[in-house]
Design a protein around this nucleic acid. Structure first.
Lengths: 257, 257
DNA sequence: TTCTTTCATTCGCCATTGTCGAACAGCGTT
DNA sequence: AACGCTGTTCGACAATGGCGAATGAAAGAA
């Protein structure tokens, strides 16, 4: 199990990923400081990445930013993430119907990742974007997926995630979360009620592939005050049926349990 | 000018980019063959990239495909990258090839706006500059965009614009223009033949984003007398393929939904 | 102006790192 | 069972890339 990892590639990855967290433009010095590597080392890495189009230098201030090659590769990946293509029209329709923002996510490396987003017509926008990652334990989409994984997987994911508390409502007790997963399985949808961000509520439902495994989920996210009373049942029904429709398009045969 | 390039990063880039040309799933062997590297070397690179999320292995057939991290990075780039950067090298090349001025425009508030211009080597310069606005109904770039908008949008734009006649050739009848849009859709390019300025002819083609919407267009503009006979087909082919290339870089998947 | 500071970039040396060939381990086929 | 085809692991050696120091270039400060 001793994998042979190549240091310079890891370092290059460190450099690239630094841009995700530290803003779109960085100087050699900023990078070498953050990564604790010598300027000359960082310079070498950067020039190589630039040469390949993974970074590009701004001639004005000599700073660097992520390059077009990444955009090309990213789009290629997106194209072959076929669930996105299938789900897109369906969630778009749902977003129109409920007048709210709808997200599509999958689970990857212990976290939830947003692969599609349709903004509702209402201007008030939720902070999220395609490619964003979020924890599983305190998002509707995360819990919708968790609820349909094996006990073993759930344990792994909940222990890997540090169960950070983002708000006073975030659940940080594994058993408490597991208990909720039962309800989610029974009702067919998951709720995130200000567990990751105050004022934000989400209703989510799972998506299954042709083998019957959960591979994704969708959610409707809105300011808490908008998901109430008469509207809530409509949103729940909408999310559940949209999720079911996507599952069906993916070849899922139905819920036999 | 002797840049110090780091080999293993270049090799990692080679691996990633191989997926762009050789299909979405490759095995270790396929990669090592194509790159003429030993299996163990490739294996090391791949495992590193996989470890970082740049590749992922399909547990079924053990083949690898591009990973989600690239998706994340690509979307980040997309958000901070404007079309100008993507298009610039492509239209520059085109300008060299056809020896004429090439423009890139988008549509903004009912008008066309020039966001990039590459002058051809020939001195005779067309009056235009970055930031300039022009009407949609009598420019090649405007019509190329119009042709791919919804009927509703077209109506709105053509009524908002006053359909001013700049020359004796300017079309001012909505129905006449709409008829021409059909031809533009069929042939894939638009022509402006002295419709905005006497003696000026343009050949334009539309640019689509990843969602399949027109967001821009490019054109080759030249004195009418230079766009004739043998040269015209070359220019048309050049403009169309450059536009297609830009669209592709933007994630446009092709015209089959 | 001239001196100072701050970065980006280049260079040469040496230890570290990654490459290769070979061996091992699974799996399906003959 | 033996073979052929993979993906994966291992050890040894040499090329490679990392570091510190030098250079260049630009922007302030005196």
């Amino acid at each position: 199990m001793t994998e042979r990892l190549i240091q310079s590639i890891e370092r290059a990855a460190d450099v690239l990923e630094l841009f995700l967290t530290n803003g779109p433009e960085l100087s050699v010095k900023e990078i070498s400081d953050k990564l604790q590597l010598s300027k000359s080392t960082v310079h070498g890495i950067i020039k190589t990445l630039e040469h390949r189009g993974y970074l590009q230098q701004n001639p004005e201030d000599l700073k660097y930013k992520l390059g077009i090659k990444l955009f090309t590769l990213g789009n290629f990946v997106g194209k072959h993430l076929d669930i996105g293509n299938i789900a897109r029209p369906i969630i778009r329709e749902l977003a129109d119907e409920v007048n709210e923002t709808v997200h599509l996510v999958t689970i990857q490396r212990d976290e939830v990742i947003y692969i599609e987003k349709v903004e509702g017509p209402r201007a008030l926008t939720i902070y999220s974007h395609i490619g964003k990652r979020a924890p599983v334990h305190c998002t509707g989409v995360g819990k919708a997926i968790l609820a349909h994984l094996s006990e073993k997987e759930v344990d792994r994911l909940l222990s890997a995630a540090s169960l950070e508390a983002f708000t006073g409502y975030t659940m940080t007790d594994v058993n408490q979360i597991k208990k909720q997963l039962v309800t989610i399985r029974e009702t067919g949808y998951a709720v995130d009620d200000e567990e990751i961000e105050l004022g934000l509520k989400c209703i989510a439902a799972p998506i299954f592939n042709h083998k019957g495994n959960v591979i994704a989920s969708i959610s409707c996210a809105a300011p808490k005050m908008r998901l109430v009373e008469e509207k809530l049942p409509r949103v729940i029904a909408g999310i559940k049926s949209a999720a079911a429709e996507i599952s069906k398009s993916l070849g899922y045969k139905g819920n036999n349990f």
